[in-house]
Structure formats: C-alpha cells, structure tokens
C-alpha cells in the first residue's frame, strides 16, 4: 500500500507514448532542451482517471498513477497533445474473479472504459491541437486505397478474391494482408508473413477473401514521412540489375541495396496532404513505387511508423524537427 503525495502539474503540452518507442526518448529530450512545458503519459505503465471535470466550465484534471508516483494534471493550459503510440489505460479497480467471469460485468467495464476514452479524445480534439491517432491507430487499408484513387493517386491494379483462378495467367501478382501480418509460433520459432509474390500452385480453388495486387516493376521504392506540414523522403533501392561479373559480396536480401534522400514532386506532395486531410491524419509514413516510365504508385500509409532511419538518410534529426513542430503549434 503506497502512500504517495500527489504532484500537480499544468503543462502546455501532453505527450502520450509507449515506453517501447525509441524515438519517444529523443523527442522528449529535445522538448526539454527547448525548455518546453510538457508532461508525458506512458501508455503501458501509467493508469489514468478523469479526476475532475465540470461540464459547465469545461475545466478538467486527470489523475495519473503508476507504481511510484501520482500526478494530478490540470488540462486547462494544454495547447497540444501528441500521441506517438499506445492505448491509454483507464483505472479499473480490481474485482473478484467470480464477478469477472460474468459477461455483463465485462461488458460494463469495456463500455465504461470505451466511453471515457472516446470522451477524452473528443474533449482534446475540440480544444487542442491533437497530433497522431488516438487508440489503436488502425487504418483500413482497403478504404485507404479507395480514397487514394479518389485524390488521383495511381495505385497498382487491386482485387479482392476468393478464387485466384479468375486472375490473368500471364501476369505477376502479389498478395498483401487485408489488415495485419499473421504471426504464429511453433517449435521455438516465430513465423511472420510478408508481402510477397503470389504462387498460384499453393492454393485450393476457394479461399478466404484475399487482397491481391498486380506486381509493379519498380525502379525504386519511396518512403515519405510527414509530420504536420514537414515532409521528408527517401528512395529505397532493393537490388541492382546484374550488369556484369558475379557479385562476390554476400548481400542480405532483406536489407535494401541503398537508401538515398529524395524530394518528391510538388503534385505528389499536394496529393499526400489531401489524402491526409481525408483520412484525418496529421502524421504518417507513405510508401510509393517509382517505375521506369516515370510513374509514382501509391502503396500504403502507416500512421505510426518508425522514422529515425529515414531522418538519418536525409541528414536530419527528425526527433528534433518533431519537437520543434510541437512547440511551435
């Protein structure tokens, strides 16, 4: 039973993140370097309660508890909330196993937490700048592809199929996961799926709905990282054509051949910002393919990608850029 005194804070900036994210440490250190007035909520180790809210005056304070400390955060000065990664844990006091076995009790708790979480998001979005996606940060790939087409991006020919035999025979296709990769463990091994070429011979006549795309012959891939209005890109070269003599070096096929800083054309920038508006994103990583005939094909967007490496390729510390952008809002 801990006896802690509460510490009260009135920050201008709230950072919500998972302690497993390495950029989070650097971003907060840059914020400290710039003497920003911020408070961090750790998605895994902190437990959150809406400590006090007066709907009449709209004044709110949060209670943050973890193993060793307790904070009361007065929200009234908060101008910006940055959610890097993670789902907030709301306080649910322990109850007996017997109660937990009842569906109705679980429902009660689930909806209780969901309501508070949704309300908190609503509250912040209506009064502050909110950067990042609240909650599971899950983005529907299929909807993204449709919306990308609407803002006039070129996308690879895309299908959803239960019978792969209805695809053209002389064409190369790749299979992509509809939502997330499948990870299984067995015999001390971890099996993880990846986006790869479709081998028709492996499949029975009827399978579950699968996402299939026509393979694009690319010159290189492009990753674009956007944070508010700041855009940074790199070109990723996976392999060179075999020009001549056997390569005597052993290259790991999983690592790209080279990554180079890249500037995307203005029209592509405009489309990216438009797509972000439609998807209600203000930060994310966008993947494209550039083809021999000069076309950029949109592949997907990741709202919570890692960007440290892209920054290094471009010669920029993106953690610093992010801290500066958060402060200047």
């Amino acid at each position: 039973m801990k006896t802690t005194t509460s510490i009260t804070k009135q920050p201008e900036i709230l950072i919500i993140s998972s302690e497993e994210d390495s950029n989070y440490k650097s971003i907060t250190e840059w914020l400290a370097y710039y003497k920003a007035d911020f408070f961090c909520i750790n998605a895994y180790s902190d437990i959150l309660s809406i400590h006090s809210y007066d709907m009449q005056t709209q004044e709110m304070s949060l209670l943050i508890e973890n193993q060793n400390q307790e904070f009361i955060i007065d929200i009234n000065n908060v101008k910006t909330v940055f959610i890097r990664k993670g789902i907030l844990n709301f306080k649910v006091n322990p109850i007996s196993d017997a109660l937990l076995k009842q569906h109705a009790v679980l429902d009660y708790i689930y909806h209780y937490e969901k309501s508070l979480n949704e309300f908190l998001e609503y509250y912040f979005r209506s009064r502050c700048n909110v950067i990042g996606l609240w909650g599971a940060a899950f983005i529907n790939k299929l909807i993204v592809l449709e919306e990308a087409k609407k803002v006039d991006f070129k996308i690879p020919e895309t299908f959803l199929k239960t019978n792969l035999n209805t695809l053209k025979t002389n064409t190369s296709y790749i299979s992509k996961t509809v939502a997330i990769p499948l990870i299984t463990t067995s015999n001390h091994k971890k099996f993880m799926t990846y986006t790869g070429k479709l081998d028709f011979s492996l499949f029975p006549k009827r399978i579950m709905t699968s996402l299939i795309q026509k393979e694009i012959k690319k010159l290189f891939e492009i990753r674009v990282f956007v944070f508010l209005k700041k855009i940074y890109s790199m070109a990723i070269f996976s392999q060179m054509n075999k020009e001549s003599v056997v390569d005597y070096r052993v290259y790991n096929n999983d690592t790209p051949y080279l990554e180079e800083p890249y500037t995307i054309p203005n029209y592509l920038q405009k489309k990216i910002l438009k797509l972000m508006e439609v998807l209600k994103l203000n930060t994310g990583s966008f993947d494209f393919m550039y083809t021999e005939d000069g076309e950029y094909y949109f592949l997907e967007v990741n709202p919570v990608g890692q960007f440290g490496h892209l920054g290094r390729v471009c010669g920029v510390d993106l953690n610093k850029v992010i801290a500066q952008e958060i402060i200047s809002l």
Partner: peptide, 22 residues
C-alpha cells in the same frame, strides 16, 4: 508451415512467410 496452413484456405498473404528463432 506452408504445408499445414495451405489446408485451411486462409487468405493468400498467409503463405508468404519467414521464420525466426525465438
């Protein structure tokens, strides 16, 4: 893995796999 999972008729992406020791 592929031999086993092939039987279930899962979505096509499931059969492109890499394994790692845990």
């Amino acid at each position: 893995y592929i031999t086993q999972l092939k039987k279930y008729g899962l979505p096509a992406d499931v059969l492109n796999v890499n394994s790692f020791p845990i």
